[in-house]
């Protein structure tokens, strides 16, 4: 059920932001500086394109709360609320793996 709800939330958010669907939601385009949109050799940073939205949401929430240890991701996740995280997760989930 959660998986079905997320894209709907993302859609609402995009409408609220008056942006076109193809454009990444606020915050998402910064992620690809580290999380490569293409396959990159010899990196320890995981790709997130094509990952399940529910997995991305869970990681971001646990980084934000500190439940899952991290270096920079906890500090970054604290800058996003649930709706923003849901929109970013839905967008990356829709990108080619």
């Amino acid at each position: 059920m959660r998986l079905m709800v997320l894209p709907a939330l993302a859609g609402l958010f995009l409408l609220a932001g008056a942006a076109e669907a193809a454009e990444p939601p606020p915050g998402a385009s910064s992620c690809t500086g580290c999380h490569a949109p293409m396959k990159v050799a010899d990196t320890v940073i995981p790709r997130i394109a094509g990952r399940k939205a529910s997995d991305i949401v869970q990681f971001m929430r646990e980084y934000r709360s500190g439940a899952w240890p991290s270096s920079v991701m906890g500090r970054i996740a604290k800058g996003f609320d649930d709706a923003q995280i849901n929109a970013i997760a839905a967008w990356f989930a829709a990108q080619p793996e």
Binding site: E23, P26, S30
Partner: peptide, 12 residues
């Protein structure tokens, strides 16, 4: 002719 969305940016 569209209004740009308010962005969020990250620096690391």
């Amino acid at each position: 002719g569209r209004k740009p969305q308010d962005p969020i940016l990250i620096n690391t």
